[in-house]
């Protein structure tokens, strides 16, 4: 049984002191221990940006890909070896700007991948530009007069886009965040956990204090029905997505279980052998 220590590396962090990403890393490591994951059978696919560095700090099989492409890479890893626990991790730019196409299609494809988005509403590693989740009016180096675009609403998009598991956590609320990641990993199918992960350097608007005052914990609302897309959308609309907790979940069959004839054992261990009769039958179409 792996311990918290087993998922740590000796790498020193590149994140700014106080960065929300520390909380995401800690919660993820706790969640991995809690679900009984092992470093050797865990694959983490990270994107580009501050968030993408997370793979440096977790002991597992990690691939740090091109900007916006964590989800296709994660799909490839999952299909190559179905026995692996596959997590994709990236920031709001990776997920909702350059990678938006993959995001929407991954929702409806529903492969068994846990997607953690570290959302700080700003581009940090490039030193402070507008992100797709930045609020209208947000001042950055690329929006000196304030952003004139409406922000993306990732949770509503996910619910409307066919997601089977949608949650939002806050990097300061560790027990809930770790629990959401555990539930995401245990979900059969694609799970989105959008994590509010404040940037202490480039976002002074959406600060820890601001979130602590505005976020509503849905998990503490016994009347909330997380099995209805319509009600989830309504609540997200009413709260401007300023909620934490499990927002929507439905039982699902993951993509890889629906592929006709798909091997249950890892493709990675397959010897490539084809029975001679099968090969001969295949060639008949060319006779």
């Amino acid at each position: 049984m792996a311990t918290l220590q087993d998922f740590k590396t000796e790498e020193k962090s590149w994140w700014c002191p106080g960065c929300g990403d520390f909380g995401v890393l800690a919660a993820l490591q706790k969640a991995l221990v809690k679900v009984g994951a092992e470093p050797a059978t865990t694959a983490i696919i990270a994107g580009i940006g501050c968030s993408g560095k997370i793979g440096n700090y977790i002991n597992s099989y990690n691939i740090h890909v091109t900007h916006g492409r964590t989800l296709p890479a994660a799909l490839g890893v999952k299909l190559a070896n179905r026995t692996l626990r596959v997590l994709a991790v990236g920031g709001d730019g990776d997920a909702y700007a350059i990678g938006m196409g993959h995001f929407m299609h991954s929702l409806r494809r529903n492969a068994d991948i846990t997607y953690i988005v570290m959302d700080n509403h700003v581009y940090g590693l490039t030193k402070g530009q507008t992100s797709p989740t930045s609020e209208t009016g947000f001042h950055t180096k690329t929006s000196p007069q304030g952003s004139i675009e409406a922000p993306v609403h990732p949770l509503m998009l996910a619910v409307a886009g066919g997601a089977t598991f949608v949650a939002q956590g806050f990097s300061s609320w560790q027990p809930q965040l770790a629990d959401l990641i555990v539930r995401g990993m245990e979900h059969h199918g694609f799970s989105l956990i959008n994590v509010i992960s404040p940037c202490v350097t480039y976002n002074r608007v959406n600060s820890y204090d601001w979130y602590k005052k505005t976020l509503v914990n849905l998990d503490e609302d016994p009347t909330y029905d997380r099995s209805s897309r319509a009600r989830a959308l309504t609540r997200l609309e009413e709260t401007d997505e300023l909620v934490t907790g499990l927002i929507y979940q439905e039982a699902s069959t993951p993509y890889e279980e629906k592929i006709p004839g798909f091997l249950k054992t890892p493709l990675a261990h397959h010897d490539g052998h084809i029975a001679q009769e099968a090969w001969d039958a295949l060639l008949e179409q060319f006779e």
Partner: peptide, 21 residues
């Protein structure tokens, strides 16, 4: 896939994980 960016990256992910993709 949804595009060629995804196609090649999924194949690379699978190659990393040991499948012939």
């Amino acid at each position: 896939m949804e595009d060629e960016l995804g196609s090649i990256t999924a194949a690379i992910g699978a190659g990393f994980a040991g499948a012939r993709a």
